[in-house]
Nucleic acid binder design. Structure first.
Lengths: 129, 129
DNA sequence: CTTTGATTGATAATCTATTATCACTTGATA
DNA sequence: TATCAAGTGATAATAGATTATCAATCAAAG
């Protein structure tokens, strides 16, 4: 996963941070992780790299509930998401929960689909109990 | 569906406009429809009424792709959405396309779920051809 | 019909995400 | 190593959605 012509500490740190995520991420989260390897890193550079990676098709924007816009690597297997209303975490759910034989009404052509479950994650369910 | 104490032309027009939608709507769309019955209507009043209706549980916020935030009546039968990348329209899809026997990993408790198909709607597919 | 506080419209303000600007820094090449 | 355009950080600017403000209006009650 390369972002552009020059290899800079910043880009390396950003790409490494993104590759380290297990699911979706926000620009702010990337900033936080990448700053460990690259302390002075600024948010503008994160946005620049994210835009490049989107243009390259390495990552894509995904929409999860009312939270801030998120991105996700495209080189991951098909999966869906669980959004915890309590802690805000977005967790990947393996596999696809759609009916195998589901068909859209005639005329509709879907290039992709998303399934988002909303509720309470195990961690928050425990702390509530 | 009432919104508050006084019955005003504005609230009536807004509620009527919302009841007339077949699926999701944005504040701007409500403004446009309600202004037919109530010409001077301002966007602030639409936002005020929408907030009241959300607090009353009559409508809820839904998230559809990268489009502006949308709302939807809660008194509709369970369904999902198709988002046309070409024209931006959001169309309701009857029924539920999830596997009947689908179970979340242990520990997760979902209070709701959303399925969003993205692609081309019949209208746009026709005009492309 | 008068009163009065709820409601409204216009618009300024706010909030958050994202982009543009620009002087300074630095990777890659000669 | 010297050069120089790509890249960067700080921050101002932008954009869009939503909320706050406030004087004017109006529904409802007497």
């Amino acid at each position: 996963m390369s972002t552009a012509k020059r290899q800079t500490q910043q880009r390396t740190a950003i790409v490494t941070a993104i590759e380290g995520t297990d699911c979706t991420f926000t620009p702010q989260e990337v900033l936080g992780h990448a700053q460990r390897a690259c302390p002075g890193l600024g948010i503008a550079t994160v946005y620049r790299s994210i835009r490049e990676l989107v243009e390259q098709g390495c990552i894509q924007r995904v929409v999860v509930a009312g939270s801030a816009p998120r991105y996700e690597r495209t080189n991951v297997t098909h999966h869906h998401h669980f959004h915890c209303e309590s802690c805000g975490a977005v967790t990947p759910l393996e596999g696809c929960s759609l009916k195998e034989n589901y068909r859209l009404p005639s005329g509709f052509r879907a290039s992709s689909h998303d399934v988002i479950f909303t509720g309470t994650c195990p961690k928050c369910a425990d702390s509530e109990a």
